[in-house]
């Protein structure tokens, strides 16, 4: 049985040290070891986007990264991003437009939308649809999400 490996990283601005099994992926580490349950597990094979989070500032799939690979990294999740207000425009727009139903995809969807707006402050509807194609939503049919991202982009 392989042993655990010590890792030290920054999660939502705070330093974290743990010893983890090599096979533990980052999203399970965040959810189980740190109680950060806002990042969701939808498929565990990198397709659905529910586990989207920021790793060293880049949007990644939490199920396709090992926790040991995050040693020394900076991780931000929906909890941290919400608390520092990084998603406020999008969250307000999603609320106003009812761009979420069950809410399971929503944290990943918000992070993906924020990544788009960071590189393209005024994306077209087609560009929004293309960019969000890696994030499944089974409830909304996407239209309201596209509207909400468009509205958030239009706000100063």
């Amino acid at each position: 049985m392989p042993g655990t490996i010590p890792i030290a990283l920054t999660v939502n601005g705070a330093p974290v040290s743990r010893a983890v099994e090599p096979r533990l992926n980052l999203v399970d580490f965040l959810r189980i070891d740190l109680g950060l349950t806002g990042t969701h597990v939808g498929c565990e094979h990198g397709v659905c986007g529910a586990c989207t989070l920021l790793l060293d500032g880049d949007m990644v799939r939490g199920c396709l990264v090992l926790a040991v690979q995050a040693d020394g990294a900076v991780v931000e999740t929906i909890e941290g991003l919400s608390e520092r207000g990084a998603l406020r425009r999008l969250q307000d727009a999603f609320l106003a437009r009812n761009a979420l139903q069950c809410g399971f995809c929503t944290p990943g969807m918000l992070i993906a939308a924020a990544a788009l707006l960071a590189q393209d402050p005024a994306p077209s509807r087609d560009a929004i649809r293309a960019h969000l194609s890696g994030n499944y939503c089974r409830c909304t049919g996407y239209h309201a999400i596209i509207d909400a991202v468009e509205a958030a982009a239009a706000k100063p």
Partner: peptide, 17 residues
């Protein structure tokens, strides 16, 4: 708007898992 949407948007939903 849905009052319960705020916490889902903030990652504070509580799903069974």
């Amino acid at each position: 708007p849905r009052p319960n949407a705020r916490r889902l948007l903030a990652g504070r939903g509580q799903f069974t898992d």
